[in-house]
Simulated assay, not measured.
Amino acid sequence: MSKEFEFSRRDFVKKTSLGGLSLLALPTLTSMGLSEDFKKKFDIGATFILWGYGPDNLEPALADLSKLGYHSFETFGNVIQDYDEKRGGLEALIDKTGLPITSAFCMTDVLDPSKKKEELEKLIKWTKLLKRAGGKVVEYCPSSINRKDYDYKEHKKYMVESMNDYAKAVTDLGLVCALHPHTGTPIETEEEVYFIMENVNTEYMKFGPDVGQLQKGGADPVKICNDFMSLIEHVHLKDYEGGDNGYLGYAPLGEGEVNIKKILKQLEKERPSMAGAIMFELDYDRRVKPIHTTFEAAEISRDYLKKLGYKFS
């Protein structure tokens, strides 16, 4: 790793902490005279991909999510564009369902410099449409790749440069850009996550972990969330159990191996106020019939969170 992109953990803590102070120096709930059991309970939103990935899947998803009492939703940048160009805009659907939008999942290429101009224009368009609809966070993810023979070290300089530019463009438009590591993309493994998050410009690029994706990618989501806690502005709350189960190996909340309780406790204590939200997510895969209906899977996840003290409308 070149010196230009290499930061020590000590440098990273200085870089991301308030006023250059160590995170350990920040006041804790206990030091402020509050009980360690004090918890800020988040409003829980949801992504719509359990119902499918296309524009036609969004309205039925929002109808179910509204019935189940989820507080907000996330969709894709291209879906918002489709609504803008072909369906009269996303705002009408938001008014109809009463469910506000928090975020949009947006992907751009980070490996091919020749695509940069077009990809940046696309991201700017999606960001403007999201902002117009009332959204706050671009859940940013590098575009999917064939990871066979892929080595991030061969692309690291351009990856960092391009993501800095993408994140700055989003930030300049008034929204938050949060990096979402994802399986099947250039940022999947624990090593890749740490390299990128320790080298991008965190004035612009924040962190939006998907705890199930991290688990599936072989990383420790509890450790990663803790290490980058000061940068977390949005979270995909997903469980993971493995196997061909109709959910690409993921699972309704509470039915997998992700330590969701510990992650939520960390967030409640350290990140009670984020630009985005905690978003329940469960992937869509109709190649294998799942054990639950779509509504049931979302309901099971909601009820699991209710048992933890979270409230739904």
Rank of each mutant, 00 (worst) to 15 (best):
M1N: 10
E6W: 11
S8F: 00
S31I: 07
M32H: 08
K39D: 00
D43A: 12
G45M: 06
A46I: 07
L50D: 07
D56C: 04
N57M: 09
P60S: 00
A61F: 07
T75R: 04
V79A: 08
V79P: 00
I80W: 05
Q81C: 07
R87P: 01
L90K: 00
E91R: 08
I94L: 09
D95F: 05
K96M: 06
T97Q: 02
L99I: 12
I101T: 01
T102I: 15
S114R: 08
E118I: 10
L120D: 02
K122C: 00
L130D: 00
K136N: 11
P142M: 01
I145R: 05
D151G: 04
D151S: 12
K153Q: 13
K156A: 14
Y158T: 11
Y158V: 10
D165V: 14
L173P: 02
V176Q: 06
C177P: 02
P181L: 04
T183L: 12
P186W: 01
I187C: 04
V200K: 02
K206W: 03
G208H: 02
G208R: 02
G217I: 03
D220L: 05
V222K: 11
N226C: 07
S230W: 07
Y240V: 10
E241I: 14
V258C: 06
K261S: 13
K269E: 15
K269R: 13
R271M: 07
A275S: 15
A275D: 13
M279V: 08
L282W: 08
R287E: 13
F295H: 13
E299S: 11
E299T: 06
K306W: 05
L308H: 10
G309F: 10
F312K: 11
